[in-house]
Design a protein around this nucleic acid. Sequence first.
DNA 1: CTGTTAGCGCATTCAG
DNA 2: CTGAATGCGCTAACAG
Lengths: 370, 370
Amino acid sequence: MVRTSRGRPTIADVAAKAGVGAITVSRYLRSPERVSEARGAVIAEAIRALNYVPDLNARALASHRTDVVNVLVPSLTQNIFSDVLRGIYDGVEDSGLRIELANTRYNSQIEEQQVFAALRHGPAAIIVSGTEQTPATRKMLENAGCPVIQIMDLTDDPISKIIGFSHYRAGQEMTRHLIEAGYRRIAFFAGWMNARSKQRLQGYRDALEEANLFDPDLIGETGNDDPATNGEIAAVSRPFSSATMGRELMLDMLERRPDVDAVFCNNDVLSLGALFALNARQINVPEQVGIAGFNDFDYMEAAHPGLSSVRIHRWKCGYDAMQAVRHQLEGGDVGEPIVDLGFDIMKRASTDRQKLLRSVEQPELALSLG
Amino acid sequence: MVRTSRGRPTIADVAAKAGVGAITVSRYLRSPERVSEARGAVIAEAIRALNYVPDLNARALASHRTDVVNVLVPSLTQNIFSDVLRGIYDGVEDSGLRIELANTRYNSQIEEQQVFAALRHGPAAIIVSGTEQTPATRKMLENAGCPVIQIMDLTDDPISKIIGFSHYRAGQEMTRHLIEAGYRRIAFFAGWMNARSKQRLQGYRDALEEANLFDPDLIGETGNDDPATNGEIAAVSRPFSSATMGRELMLDMLERRPDVDAVFCNNDVLSLGALFALNARQINVPEQVGIAGFNDFDYMEAAHPGLSSVRIHRWKCGYDAMQAVRHQLEGGDVGEPIVDLGFDIMKRASTDRQKLLRSVEQPELALSLG
DNA sequence: CTGTTAGCGCATTCAG
DNA sequence: CTGAATGCGCTAACAG
């Protein structure tokens, strides 16, 4: 004995005690139905008696597979992905799978390294966000030899299976709602633009152009393309405040374009900031300026006035991705490669301009309704 | 050859090509300084030429150790822990460590199972939240054979090292601030109570009692002790809305106790809901009712009026925990077993009642300042 | 349904 | 500083 084992009982100990071969114990552990009931019972007893716990590393080495699902998200800042993660964790319950979570920081290069690293331990499955993988990443993923699910976006050409929704259509539909509500000078606010934000902006733009209302001057951005300042940079203890940014963008827009009559914010926190700015300026929402956000976090409904937003199915996206993983791991097929979860335009008081039109003869009432 | 390897080059291939023993390659990989420079260069070249990548599972089996840091948090709902996670991820950069994240759902039994599961693969380190571990969990952690860090709370008796702050003192100090600001009937709002919430409540209570102001009737709770309804239950796609809860608690309190003049909310979202409720009722903040939250998320400062809150160092807590892990992994000692990160009472307009007192001769001005 | 054989790829031990 | 032998604990493969 040159080597010191940890003293824990091994599968051989169990096999000896149960009077069977080690492989039978191994089989019993992984698929009890492949072992006769009689022997199964004996093995179970031996396992209990010895307090045997299989070593995951040995299993991994021998099988080239682990129980680890690698999940890659672009951000951990409190935002949409925390709900996605909740869905993933709710979906993984009682599966024996573990989750290794990585933060790509909206950086495809980092994502590539992380996929490479993940592959080194033979993951049970990989869940990645979006469709912006580098060619090398895509290739690795195609050859991963395990289920691969893309989430939170849509594409005609998924790696294997994608579950999400169209950011373009979401941006377009909310903008159409604002137009229908009677707004004409509709601004777009964004903190910084990632691939999915750009799709939403394009939807906004197309909706306005089809109504002949597009005005590039109404796009409010911080002019920042760097995710680093979005709280994703290392060693910054407080993320850049979107609420403050929304307030600043709103105040700025009011100065530059006092005729603005609605703002479509790329995220909810931004819209909260915009609301606070309008409150401070005593500008009535939705009569004078309408507000819409994106994501539909819980506080949107509770706000005063209630803030309109695009509800996306974050939790379901994570949950369904995990279900798809489990289905495939149990031998099921990939199924529909493109799953569109859709979204809902939540129309609330903050964009209910009709209220003004409906009560145009009694303006003081309209104001008191704010 | 009964077995099909994955065809990837192994350490033996590298050793052969470099004309050295396998163990020398192994050594070179883990601590290059223990191999002569000449051989090191040859090995490096062979690795490059063969495109060799060490197999993590084989390494794990042979060494009984992985590069995985297991992190256990009680919740993934967008709250304090997303910032803690950011800190952890910022702290893990370029360390070669991976993070396996588990959600204990505020349940010590689940936590126990997860610690047990984590131990099966020989984690590099374990980070757990709070001090509520079961005796069995504690025992496993004490014998884990790897660094163990507790975070986000404080205790005299940490498992090994704890990094956090005193929830009791935080609750106490914010309450004292409210008293000093001139409030006398100060309510406490909580959605549901976990161990740390209870500590804050105790701090609130003690602060009021020392000023002879405690009134149990002013404690507003949903009477719910079950984290399940706090968004932690599986298969619930939308977490229970704290903002809505804050609004309801506020409206309820106004009805029950119209003389309430301040509310200390157990979390920021609750305080946001309270603010919206007061807005809707046209009750002036901070003149008629003061509001304070807990956590100090970014929107607190951006709110109108700015909302007071207890700023806790979430990010730093995660980051420092990771630094402690790395320090120990590099052979450093545990250091100070109890690290108090403290907190800051952020005094903003929402609790600035002095403003009223300062302008008592000109009440109309006071109101317009709201 | 069950067992035997032969590794999986790396790191430990101890001698040199 | 280096290497040979051996084992980590489990499972793939095939035969029976």
